[in-house]
């Protein structure tokens, strides 16, 4: 229990409570709204649990099965063809790199069309933005599934999936960086008689390029993560090896693949974080000059 301090006696509290009831309890309207909210929440959750068969017995049995699988995961083993696994890992990294780079190459001009301060016509800008929302709204894995059907199994489908969905994300990130630039260098150049290309080159680009690089690196990190699972639908990379092992119940090899995925992701994150800090840092240094 929380001890009550001696100089506030209970009678005084009662007197204050009688004088200002709203300070202690909620009004009837608010209480009713809360009641409706909680009841709705409980009903919806109950309905979900019922609809999706969340029965204790079922869950318990499943957990038992899961325990069996987890025990089979150890000790991790490379299997008979470790070369395949490591090559697939390289393929994953290559997919992420190419997909991100190509997307960035398309996203740069798109971003200038989508930014308010560099492109004044609202209708095309609105169109570009909605198109990008659409590209982003479809999950990368869905794009991969479609591209596998369209161009065949293999890393090309994965590269295209990353490429298409990243155009959407990078255009958004890039255009936000463009909209956030400092206007004064631009005005200064214009006032000193620079042409619009010169203005772009000497006032906009120096400000946005480090931001672009940093966003692209960030997306590369994220794409390494997502590229590890694109193989599940046949789009190349380590995910193909992983889902293959899981479907064939080679749990020890699956565990090994999972471990090297985790290590790779951690390494890429660390390197990229350092690079991003260096890039943003050099930008701040450039400003000081």
């Amino acid at each position: 229990m929380i001890a009550v301090q001696a100089d506030i006696d209970l009678a005084r509290i009662a007197a204050i409570r009688a004088r200002m009831p709203r300070a202690f309890t909620r009004g009837p309207g608010e209480r009713f709204a809360l009641w409706v909210g909680w009841t709705g929440f409980a009903l919806l959750t109950g309905y979900c649990l019922w609809r999706f068969n969340f029965s204790p017995v079922y869950l318990w049995n499943g957990l038992g099965e899961l325990g069996v699988i987890v025990r089979q995961l150890f000790p991790p083993s490379m299997g008979e063809a470790p070369g395949d696994i490591f090559y697939a890992l390289l393929e994953t990294l290559a997919m992420a790199f190419l997909g991100t780079f190509l997307a960035a190459a398309v996203a740069v001009p798109m971003a200038f069309l989508a930014a308010k301060n560099t492109f004044p016509f609202w209708l095309p800008r609105f169109g570009v933005r909605r198109l990008m929302d659409g590209l982003r709204g479809v999950d990368q894995l869905i794009w991969a599934l479609i591209f596998v059907r369209a161009v065949g199994l293999g890393p090309l489908a994965g590269i295209m999936a990353i490429f298409i969905s990243d155009i959407g994300t990078l255009t958004k990130l890039f255009s936000e960086s463009i909209e956030n630039i400092d206007r004064r260098p631009m005005e200064g150049l214009r006032a000193s008689g620079a042409s619009s290309v010169q203005t772009l080159r000497f006032s906009v680009l120096p400000q946005v390029l480090p931001m672009f690089l940093s966003s692209a690196l960030y997306m590369f990190e994220s794409n390494v993560r997502s590229a590890t699972i694109l193989g599940i639908v046949g789009a190349g990379g380590i995910g193909f090896q992983l889902s293959d092992r899981i479907r064939a119940h080679y749990w020890e090899e699956a565990c090994f693949i999972l471990i090297i995925i985790l290590i790779t992701v951690a390494c890429i994150d660390a390197v990229s974080k350092r690079l991003r800090l260096a890039i943003i840092g050099s930008k701040a240094g450039g400003r000081e000059l």
């Binding site: 899961l66 699988i69 899981i246 999972l258 985790l262």
Partner: peptide
Amino acid sequence: FFRTVPDLVFALIFVFAFGLGPLP
């Protein structure tokens, strides 16, 4: 660990433990 392992990989494993359907 939970956020680094892709959710689809968890799903692949859970499908074996809990059977096909939304629950896994």
